[in-house]
Structures are given as structure tokens and as C-alpha cells.
């Protein structure tokens, strides 16, 4: 078992799943269902990736919940991505200090 063959297999498969649909799909999709589906998929993927994983992201549910609350409030008021992201982390850090 050669480590570089492992890495080549990993990289090759990962590249192909990304490349094939992105490169070959040239047409505008005509199906209304499929177009709607693809319109909603980004939000669906992000939501499914975030919840419930965010609550386990800091190794402590209380600090994670505090960071989540900070992010939700700031995002609701439309603050920039980086502000929301760092505030979530900052809040988790501060709450981790207090408890």
C-alpha cells in the first residue's frame, strides 16, 4: 500500500465528482421542477450541514449554543459574513472562559 497512490485515488475521485457535472452541463435546464430544485439546493445543503453539527463544533454544547445565538442575531440584521463568523467564534470563546 503506497501512500501516494492513496492520495492519487482520493484526489482523482474528488476531482471527478466536482468536474463532471460542472463541466458537462452546458444547457439551461428546462424542467421547472429541476430548476426550482437547484434554486433551493444551496440553502438546503447549508442548513443540513449546519444543524445539528454546529452544536458539536466547539466540543461543548453551551459555548456552541452561545456562538450560534450570536451568529443568528447578527445574521438576521444582515452583518457581513466575516463579522458573523468571527463573532460566533468570539462568543463561544468568551462563554467558554466564563463557564
Amino acid at each position: 500500500m503506497n501512500i501516494f497512490i492513496y492520495i492519487a485515488v482520493m484526489a482523482g475521485v474528488t476531482y471527478l465528482v466536482r468536474m463532471i457535472p460542472f463541466t458537462l452541463m452546458r444547457k439551461k435546464i428546462s424542467s421547472k421542477f429541476l430548476r426550482s430544485f437547484l434554486h433551493y439546493i444551496p440553502y438546503a445543503v447549508l442548513s443540513a450541514m449546519t444543524i445539528p453539527a454546529i452544536f458539536y463544533s466547539t466540543g461543548d454544547m453551551i459555548t456552541a449554543a452561545a456562538g450560534t445565538a450570536a451568529a443568528v442575531i447578527l445574521a438576521y440584521f444582515g452583518l457581513p459574513l466575516i463579522v458573523v463568523a468571527l463573532a460566533a467564534s468570539g462568543m463561544a470563546f468568551i462563554v467558554g472562559f466564563i463557564i
Partner: peptide, 13 residues
Amino acid sequence: DAMGIVLYGMFLA
């Protein structure tokens, strides 16, 4: 540990 939440915070944003 606290850095673990950064990407999820971005998703929420």
C-alpha cells in the same frame, strides 16, 4: 475549540 464554529457561523450568515 472556539475556532471550530467559524465556518458554521458563515453558513448562518
